[in-house]
Amino acid sequence: MNRLRPFIRTLERRDRLSPDELALLSSAQLRVQGFRRGQEIVRAKTQPGESRLMVQGISGREMVTAEGKRQISALHVAGDFVDLHSFVLKRMDHAVVALTEVTAIFVPHAEIRRIIDASPHLGRLFWLMTTIDGAIQRAWIACLGRSTAMQHMAHLFCELWTRMEIVGLVSGHSFPFRLTQAELADVVGLSAVHVNRTLQELRGLGVVDWNGEQVEIIDFDRLVALGDFDKTYLNLTQEPR
């Protein structure tokens, strides 16, 4: 139950859960596994029999080109399912890798089926979570295609703070972010050199600072304006779904 807490918080931000639904979720047969930095949580070209739910750390969905260039197309934090979609997709086309130390819960697909059969409402909420994943992807595509490096990074930092706030990982306007600049470069699709330049510019403007361990947002309003960040796509309203 404790390990499910971050996930339940992400659901409760969007809808109310009944005591029966909470009991149903906590009755699921789960397996917990830890991953070291760099380890694959989900392997590409596999057919997972379980979906993985983040409890701790940050993981990234990665696509690697034939020449070895990597694009990280999504970041996952505590409370996020990294591959809820593998339940219906069956075969994974990409890998999910631990970018920090990660703890994840493995939820057997048979258990997901049991929960959805017993509670169509929870089934709709699972659907909602994959839909929000899609909404985040759209926001990222817009950033990748149409933003300057500064706008893109400002948007990303606003989004991560907002997502981590849901699961209680923020402290004031700071949040943990133990990635390397090269990894951040793979997230925003830029060279590590330009990412470094942009971080220096953001720091120089007195907007945000990142020491490699945590991101400190110094001027939240300005960061929101720089990144043209509108949190509507994260669907943070509690309403019947």
Partner: peptide, 15 residues
């Protein structure tokens, strides 16, 4: 190659 990519990124941000 990384140096070239950096220039490409800087040009992209040129206003």
């Amino acid at each position: 190659a990384e140096a070239r990519r950096a220039v490409r990124d800087m040009i992209r941000d040129y206003t």
